[in-house]
Design a protein around this nucleic acid. Structure first.
Lengths: 227, 227
DNA sequence: TAATAAAATTAGGTTAACCTAACTATTTAA
DNA sequence: TTAAATAGTTAGGTTAACCTAATTTTATTA
């Protein structure tokens, strides 16, 4: 039996591991993420280890086993499907969908998920550009990297954002930058790495390196030297 | 803070009280309904009494206070809105909606409920004909009573069912009797109280008293002597 | 590298929500 | 009307999920 708490612990491990792949997932990280105290996490980790969902030791931190990852990906799937549904079908805004999806993701009905996934047209990506795992837990391929890694002259398409905060999303809306928009990097300021961009609708957009790090793009300029 | 368990206890008291208004709601009734043991119920009742949601004593059983009733009716509201939504928008069948709505009713987002209530067209009744309480916990008026109380010659409109089991609903579907259908009572068998009915599409339908007790109707024959 | 800070861990405690077993009070029925 | 059955209650126990405080490890930095 998987309770919603157990699901949340597994999802936390998954998300923390993916957020920074170079770092191990420590009990303290999980505790901060879930807003509980480290001893609570240790206790739960022991249970998850016993159930075969994670491995844990002080040096490698917590890692999901294959089974654990399957469960985590299924919750991520449900979350992203609900977010898309709330956004597209029920006309919720960017900033509202996450919190409600956090609750809805724990509703236990495959048929319901299948049904709403059909209604939204079986997309591969949610409205943030995040990939929706399939039923087998496989993520659709997408070659995304931060806009900040672009070089001058690069032409990219916006495929997502790595920050989901309201203030950031509103900032993008103001700049009229949205999913699937094409950006041309006109200039990169060598001093602070800020960018000058142009889009179809707007030219000479100035953007800080900080913001550019949160925008995920794919280069579509043939033979571009960008990484 | 209202947990989903607390919500379920209050809903149970509400439903048991409404199911048989002449009977008090005993700890054992609640225990059977929620599939827990009586001591568990007693314990929870003490908490609910302390919180001011119910009153309890051995002789009157459990009764909801005004506050408790407001909470219970809000859950009933959410449940019936979700059932209608699942049925009408997501094309779930009669027999599937209840179980999923049992989970969805605990999702805490007034905005979500408002949104889906709008989508289904702000109806007063759910697909079982059960009234949907408004936000203030007021039930829409409906004058319903069992078909079994009809007399010969009575003409009634079907406004609901008091049994929601799959087998019963399938039986009605077979007889082509649905919500808002009109029935004429041709004959009542004095021996076993079985009825002979006719509808627009079918004549001489035989129905047991048992089934007729579960169908809720309103008489639409002017000056009918039925009760 | 020794002192300090931070993280991991252990020990022990709380609360909610469940349980069984035993007992008491109330009904029901012989 | 008394014995048997049923319902209500109390006592005491378990587990999950949290906690704080104290201790041990590990990492950082002066």
């Amino acid at each position: 039996m998987k309770t919603y708490r157990e699901e949340n612990y597994l999802k936390a491990v998954y998300q923390l591991a993916n957020h920074d792949k170079s770092k191990t997932v420590s009990p303290t990280d999980i505790a901060n993420w879930l807003e509980v105290k480290p001893p609570t996490v240790l206790e739960k980790l022991a249970i998850l280890v016993k159930k075969g969902y994670v491995t844990y030791n002080k040096f490698d931190g917590a890692r999901l086993t294959t089974t654990g990852k399957d469960i985590a990906l299924n919750i991520v799937r449900r979350h992203r499907i609900w977010e898309t549904y709330l956004y597209k079908e029920l006309k919720f805004s960017w900033s509202e969908v996450h919190e409600i999806a956090e609750q809805l993701e724990h509703i236990n009905s495959d048929k319901l998920i299948d049904r709403i996934y059909d209604v939204i047209g079986n997309p591969d990506f949610d409205p943030h550009g995040d990939p929706i795992p399939n039923k087998q837990g496989k993520l659709p391929k997408s070659d995304r990297r931060p806009l900040s890694q672009s070089i001058k002259g690069c032409k990219c398409v916006v495929l997502g954002v790595s920050e989901h905060s309201e203030v950031f999303l509103n900032y993008l809306t103001e700049l009229k930058i949205g999913l699937n928009d094409k950006l041309i990097v006109e200039q990169i300021n060598a001093y602070d790495d800020s960018l000058k961009l142009s889009t179809k609708t707007k030219e000479h957009i100035l953007m800080s390196a900080k913001a550019a790090q949160q925008i995920l793009v794919q280069c579509i300029k043939p033979n571009c030297a960008c990484k």
